[in-house]
Every structure is written in structure tokens, then in C-alpha cells.
């Protein structure tokens, strides 16, 4: 396990060192950006709409019983901005894009395409890893902003439609506007950037270390997704602690 962590950190460092090459790989970055961002929009929309809705559905009636239903907007707003949108989007992208990255690079490794690149003095980190990690780091915060907006809408719809909550759109969003500050959104975006690095690096690392044919590719894909999600949840806890420490200062 420690060897894996060391290799992942080394890969991340080498990718950082290769960042000046990003412009040269802009075409591949755009292709990846389209794949990660555009093609995930529908899933992100559905997921976020229902998460916002379910948060409102669970907490709205409880708040209404205590006569503070008007605080629902802030509650939905904060929980989505600081926690749910970054984590759920990260899990979605780990499953959808991390698995694809591990499978694609893994099959390139198994079928000697990565070796072919090396024999042409083309660094696989520059050619394969850098565009993917750069694209995921651009796409994730954008997807999280999109998720927050859609999730807030979902919460708003439920707050209006549910007779036990029975808020107006205006009350819901006015409270959300009062409670949610820019730093809360920034908090979520910082998390999403960290998660993007985790998904990109873990998935590319799994792809590049794939051995053993189709079964090996399958194993790499599973490990990429599972390891990414576990790391995302662990990292989420620690980033939250750091952020709370800053909030308290």
C-alpha cells in the first residue's frame, strides 16, 4: 500500500513538473474536457436535482414543526455548497471518468502502446496523464458550481411543492442568499479541486501499472474507482477540519 501511495505521489509530482507542457497538449485537454464536462452534465443535473430535493424533503418538515421552515434555504444551500455537491460530483466522476481513464491507459499499457510511446521518446506522463489531470481539474470545479445551482433549485422545488414545508421560492432563496457566503462556495470548490487531483492521479496510476491482459484491465478499473472514492472521503474529512479551523479563526 505504501509503495502505491509513493508511486501516486511521484506521478502527481511529475505531472506538476510537466505543467508547462500543458499548452502543447491543448487539443487533448479540450477533448478530455468535453468528455469529462459536457458528457457528464446530464448525470450531474439529475443527481444534484434529487440530492437538493431529498435534503429539503428530510429537513424541511422537521424545521417546519419547530416553526423555522424559513431557515431551509440556508440549510440546503450550505450543505450542498460545502459538502454534498463536491463529494457527490467527485463520486460520479470517479465512477464515470476515473474508470474510463484507468481502462483506456490500462489497455494501452497491456497492448504495448505505452511502450511504443516510450520508444518514440514520448513521455507517457506528458502525453497521457497531463491532459487528463489538467482537464479533470478544470472540469470538476465547474461541474460542482453547476451541481450547486441545480441542487439549490431541487431544494427550492421541494420546499414549494411539499405541503408540510410550503415555502415560497422567494423565502427559500432569500434565506439561502442570506446564509450562503462566497467562502462557503469557495470551500466546496477547493474540495472539488483536491478530489479532481485524487481521481486523475489514482486512475492514471492504476492504468499505467496495469498488468495481465483483459482481467488486469478490469482489476485496475475496480481499484481506480474504489481507491478514489475511499481517498475522497478520507480527504473530505481532513479538508473539512482544516476549513473549520480557518472559519473559527
Amino acid at each position: 500500500m505504501f509503495q502505491n501511495i509513493g508511486e501516486i505521489l511521484l506521478l502527481l509530482w511529475r505531472t506538476f513538473c510537466a505543467l508547462p507542457q500543458s499548452f502543447r497538449q491543448r487539443k487533448m485537454i479540450f477533448e478530455q474536457l468535453f468528455e469529462i464536462g459536457n458528457r457528464s452534465l446530464l448525470m450531474a443535473c439529475i443527481l444534484s436535482l434529487f440530492i437538493g430535493g431529498v435534503v429539503a424533503l428530510q429537513s424541511g418538515p422537521v424545521l417546519a414543526e419547530r416553526g423555522i421552515a424559513s431557515a431551509l434555504g440556508g440549510l440546503v444551500g450550505i450543505s450542498l455548497a460545502k459538502e454534498l455537491s463536491p463529494v457527490m460530483m467527485a463520486i460520479l466522476i470517479a465512477g464515470r471518468i476515473g474508470s474510463a481513464m484507468a481502462a483506456e491507459i490500462g489497455s494501452m499499457r497491456v497492448y504495448q502502446e505505452v511502450d511504443a510511446l516510450r520508444t518514440m521518446n514520448i513521455n507517457p506522463i506528458h502525453y497521457l496523464v497531463l491532459p487528463r489531470i489538467t482537464a479533470i481539474c478544470i472540469a470538476m470545479p465547474l461541474l460542482v458550481i453547476f451541481s450547486m445551482l441545480v441542487g439549490w433549485m431541487g431544494g427550492g422545488f421541494v420546499a414549494v411543492a411539499n405541503h408540510r414545508i410550503a415555502l415560497t421560492f422567494q423565502t427559500f432563496f432569500s434565506n439561502l442568499h442570506d446564509v450562503v457566503q462566497l467562502k462557503d462556495v469557495a470551500n466546496g470548490l477547493i474540495k472539488s479541486l483536491a478530489f479532481a487531483f485524487v481521481i486523475g492521479t489514482v486512475s492514471c496510476h492504476q492504468g499505467l501499472t496495469t498488468i495481465g491482459g483483459p482481467r488486469g484491465i478490469g482489476r485496475s478499473v475496480t481499484k481506480a474507482v474504489v481507491n478514489s472514492i475511499v481517498l475522497i472521503l478520507i480527504l473530505d474529512y481532513y479538508i473539512t477540519r482544516v476549513m473549520l479551523a480557518f472559519d473559527n479563526d
Partner: peptide
Amino acid sequence: LAMVFQSGALL
């Protein structure tokens, strides 16, 4: 140097 791989190894 160049190498022609057994599988072709085309991208």
C-alpha cells in the same frame, strides 16, 4: 531507435 511491436501497438 525504432521498434515494431508484436501487436503493432498503434494508438
